[in-house]
Design a protein around this nucleic acid. Structure first.
Length: 385
RNA sequence: GUGGCCAUAGUGAAAUGGUUAUCACGCGAGUUUGUGGUACUCGCAGUACGGGUUCAAUUCCCGUUGGCCACC
């Protein structure tokens, strides 16, 4: 069996996902490695954080170096020398984010992204060249990339979508879901098994979210993801959305909230609602800009560039057991930022990822021992669960 | 010692006889959410000192101090 529940405490649950590249203990955070690299980290660094599954991105890898080249070189794992489980996002989110960025820049009319019932036309952010994704194309690319878990090609609905717009996008997403399942029946070039996840949409409308959940759950996906701009970005709406669909989410499949993990406490919000896996670019992105997780501040974050750390010989965080915290002082990392040294990116990325994964380990133990609520209290997250 | 040139945020440079003196670096703080980001946003800080001309001087003149160059 692909996923197996190990323990449960309230709606929070622990489990294990089996892939041909190793097991994933859930709940867990998945570091993002868009371009077949978790920025600033090599394969061994990643494994030292305790990470199992990492993400890569269909959109970016399609543009560079191209899925055919990666397939020819033996797939993503071999290409980037990462032996563990991997997941690829389908490119659906990039259609949304590139369109949104274009609108911001040019005022209106995102004419570089055109969605029709069959697929999406878009332009490369690298050279402006025209490309097209459809459910069949996105699945084919992901087959060639060879991640252990691949994602349904969907339409990521903006926060602001009206009921009508959200409904229209959801109907297309549902049609594409069926087409992805169909396309996934054709085997890819790699020997190992690839699992396919469906994605629930419906924006901020309870009726649509429930309808989408029922539909996606009715299809033979290996796992269920919750997508949309709000997820992760607007935690209050994320919690509300998960509560709306709580009673109809399939029990026997892994559940994935896409984009959750900016704040360590966000993990309590979704795990308390039965979510098993989640990813977020923020932990690594903010790390590269000096924002580091620490239990020693009220909001669990400190800005290591701040002058107050110039002579601070403490570790970033006393609780954290990452290689950065075991070996380096705040003063040193502060210095690396002030001098624009490259080592800063690695040390801080290692820390932020390890911090979240260590918390995931403690959460898994707490669920097993039926003290999830107590742990949430310890982290001042009781109002979030 | 004599002559010449120069003096504008912490640093390096702009500009002007008349609204709030510009830029970069620096310094300080903030942002980041299925990664177009070693990024972005906001803030701090200045006309060497003394006198004169003028309605008005950072700008023109004199002196002081300091620096650079040449000659001795």
């Amino acid at each position: 069996m692909f996923w197996k529940k190990l323990a449960q405490d309230g709606r929070a649950r622990t489990g294990i996902i089996h892939t041909d590249h190793g097991d994933i203990l859930t709940p867990t955070f998945m570091p993002v490695g868009t371009q077949a690299t978790v920025k600033a980290l090599d394969s061994r660094d990643i494994q030292e954080t305790g990470a199992s599954v990492i993400l890569a991105n269909t959109y970016h890898l399609h543009l560079r170096p191209g899925e055919d080249l990666i397939a020819e070189l033996g797939g993503l794992h071999k290409f980037m020398s990462y032996p563990g489980p991997m997941l690829t996002d389908s490119g659906g989110f990039q259609v949304f984010s590139l369109g949104a960025q274009r609108e911001e820049k040019e005022g209106s009319e995102a004419n570089n992204v055109k969605i029709d019932f069959d697929g999406v036309n878009f332009r490369s952010h690298i050279d402006g060249s025209s490309h097209r994704f459809s459910p069949e194309i996105a699945i084919d690319i992901q087959h060639k990339l060879g991640a252990d878990i691949i994602m349904n090609f969907d339409i990521c609905t903006p926060d602001s979508a009206t009921f009508e717009k959200a409904h229209e996008a959801m109907v297309i997403t549902h049609d594409w879901a069926k087409r992805c399942i169909e396309a996934h029946k054709t085997p890819g070039p790699h020997a190992w098994k690839q699992f396919l996840f469906g994605i629930i949409q419906g924006a901020n409308h309870e009726k649509l979210r429930r309808e989408s959940t029922e539909f996606i759950a009715s299809l033979p996906f290996d796992g269920i993801a919750v997508g949309g701009e709000s997820i992760g970005y607007n935690m209050e709406m994320t919690r509300a959305t998960l509560d709306w669909i709580a009673d109809i989410l399939p029990e026997d499949k892994p559940r994935y909230t896409m984009g959750v993990g900016y704040d360590p406490r966000d993990m309590f919000s979704v795990i308390a609602r039965g979510i098993d896996i989640f990813d977020c670019v923020a932990p690594t992105r903010v790390a590269r800009n000096g924002t580091l997780y620490s239990r020693e501040t009220e909001n669990l974050k400190l800005n290591i560039r701040n002058a107050q750390f110039a002579k601070d010989t403490a570790a970033i965080d006393a609780w954290c057991d990452c290689t950065t915290c075991k070996n380096y002082t705040r003063a040193y990392i502060h210095h690396l930022f002030k001098t624009d040294e490259l080592l800063a990116f690695k040390l801080t990325s290692v820390h932020n990822i390890r911090f979240l994964l260590k918390l995931c380990e403690e959460i898994r133990a707490a669920i097993t021992e039926k003290r999830f609520v107590a742990l949430a209290n310890e982290w001042n997250a009781s109002t979030l669960i």
